[in-house]
């Protein structure tokens, strides 16, 4: 078992399929919590968890504010809230202004998770048409965590991954399959 405490994934346009593949590959006893901040329509509150749950063996949850974070679960940032991790491993949600046109903002989720988990966080940025997530991934690097970017050549929309590669030195540039292999080895 690795020293990592959590995995955070950020994605936007073109990331749904990648996330679905990753989730489908994880076994029911996968021990690390997976925190996902994916851009989504602000006014549509339901349906996303259900769509992602179809192939998942792990429970997928949109956390309530102050909900304690537990291992072996996949958490999805709810519509129209920013999602933070507080010291003491509870979720905190926020209605602060949109960042990079987004609420939830990937940057803000990564900032708080890297502040909380420091070097024990794995940060992953997937396909997306926005630069949100790039500064967040940099904060993972700056706090000593491990960083992965989906190979821009494989991304449906490479803007977000390219912006991340420009913003920080990342540990790995991986295909979807390599991301899955890596996550399975962490368990």
């Amino acid at each position: 078992m690795s020293d990592y405490k959590a995995i955070m994934i950020g994605g936007s346009a073109g990331s749904f399929q990648v996330v679905s593949h990753i989730i489908a590959a994880l076994p029911a006893n996968y021990p690390l919590p997976i925190l996902m901040c994916l851009h989504r329509l602000k006014h549509i509150r339901s349906g996303f968890v259900e769509a992602l749950s179809i192939k998942s063996k792990l429970p997928i949850i949109e956390p309530h504010d102050k909900e304690p974070l537990k291992p072996g679960r996949i958490y999805l940032a709810p519509a129209n809230y920013h999602m933070y991790i507080e010291l003491g491993n509870r979720f905190a949600l926020s209605t602060e202004d949109v960042i990079n046109h987004s609420r939830p903002s990937i940057d803000l989720s990564f900032f708080s998770a890297s502040y909380n988990f420091k070097k024990k966080l794995v940060g992953i940025i997937l396909s997306g048409a926005n630069k949100d997530g790039a500064m967040g991934l940099k904060s993972v690097t700056d706090n000593g965590g491990l960083t992965i970017v989906q190979d821009p050549k494989e991304c449906q929309v490479p803007t977000m991954t390219q912006a991340s590669l420009n913003a920080t030195k990342v540990d790995y540039v991986f295909s979807t399959k390599q991301i899955i292999d890596f996550l399975l080895k962490l368990a």
Binding site: R45, E62, P63, H64, D65, K66, E67, P78, Y81, L93, T95
Partner: peptide
Amino acid sequence: IGNMETLEY
């Protein structure tokens, strides 16, 4: 309260 808030805690 907000739809992602709770009194549970």
